[in-house]
Write a protein that binds this DNA or RNA. Structure first.
Lengths: 224, 224
DNA sequence: AGCTTTTATGTGATTTTGTCACTGAAGCCC
DNA sequence: GGGCTTCAGTGACAAAATCACATAAAAGCT
């Protein structure tokens, strides 16, 4: 009898339910990887080699333009599978974006050949893979609409509100913020300066202190 | 023995392979709908009531902003399932976009309750649903990157090249073009005028004649 | 045919956003 | 302290979106 790795069992209880032999066999062979923070786990144009089950840590998936601008497409936080990886494996495509660890990440890797075998042979694993696959659509559609329709000050204010709820002082550079929103560093700098003049935030080097959540909220209300 | 509707069988041969009773029972009860061109099949904020299997015709899914701008998120052409519908059914969400028929459309509808039953009981249907679900990811990621990084003249030229390959004279208004690209009508009008001055296109009311594909291609090359 | 209404396009002025080319300031490492 | 690198500020300009209109062609009506 193959046994499921305790980390997998803890993070993905559904996997323990899989009762077919093939699925359990494949899972028991999955390699546990540990990657430090700030590392690139896949790059644009890379062929996709492994199905990834993240059990710990956070990965951001960013798109990149020819002239160096970037945008965060989505994140995998704490636990989840990489939809982009699944899409690439299914469609035999190269990665259209880059994956970067934001913290130390622990993940299980299932090589492409075994992934394909799982799709063919294991009902349980197939179901699991497709279930976890879909959920990102809504987020991407929202992102498209924000990019197409919403002003950058609105999006910036919303970002600061969201992050400012959990902690007053954010540790993030203007450049990183620009990447989060898919804008340019200078634009973000100017907007932040204007926010500071309104008394909503105070700026430091690499930090933003959110002083007036309600002021930011009013700005969001006003815009939308 | 339940029999699969010939149209479904023709368009989705995989469905005939489903060997479980429940799946076939649900499929055999699917309602065939016929919708004329130019009709809205779902609106923003609508709750999602049916799983849709399109067998004929084309539906465009468009997002809308508060101040009336629009963007085409993706299309279902000829044959396919509506990913957005699937996402909404799975996530119990309201539609975040609108679906509009572009031609006469024939589609099979499976009511929400039976869709849920299918997910629970029919392995074959579950696999089918998730398979057809994912494939739109790549397209949406591409759209995000175009919106975030690419200039509108580039995107417009690319659109004209793509459509101009099959026919020289396109029947489309500037407003519709703006919706395709998620831009504003005036911006498109000005760009087209500039294209016309370069001799790449000739403009009529509601029509665009592509005269110089290579000119447009050179423009795309130059930009990217 | 003449008239009205709707739809499609044109255009100037202004604002917002992105780009380019710099500057200076803060933190880090010998 | 001197030399890095990273982060932020800024002015000039270009591109795109918005607003407020003006025409003008088509469609509908009597």
């Amino acid at each position: 009898m193959n046994t499921l790795h305790p980390l997998l069992q803890q993070r993905y209880p559904q996997l323990a339910q899989i009762d077919d032999q093939d699925g359990q066999a494949i899972l028991s062979q999955a390699q546990l990887l540990t990657v430090p923070a700030g590392q690139s786990v896949f790059r644009i144009g890379d062929p996709c080699q492994n199905y990834l089950l993240v059990v710990e840590g956070s990965i951001k998936v960013v798109g990149r333009s020819a002239n160096g601008r970037e945008i965060v497409l989505y994140r995998i936080e704490d636990c989840g599978t990489c939809v982009l990886t699944t899409a690439c494996l299914l469609g035999q495509d190269a990665y259209p974006a880059e994956g970067i660890t934001e913290t130390k990440v622990k993940a299980f890797a299932i090589p492409r050949s075994q992934f394909e075998q799982a799709l063919n042979c294991s009902e349980g694993l197939r179901s699991f893979i497709f279930q976890s696959y879909g959920s990102r659509m809504g987020g991407l559609i929202g992102l498209v609409q924000q990019l197409a329709f919403e002003r950058i000050d609105l999006r910036l204010a919303r970002y600061l509100i969201e992050k400012g709820l959990s902690r007053v002082e954010l540790t993030i550079t203007h450049h990183e913020l620009a990447t989060e929103l898919g804008s340019a560093r200078e634009v973000i700098s100017r907007q932040l300066k204007s926010f500071e003049q309104h008394g909503w935030v105070r700026l430091g080097r690499g930090t933003i202190r959110v002083d007036d959540l309600d002021g930011l909220r009013a700005q969001v209300e006003f815009q939308s």
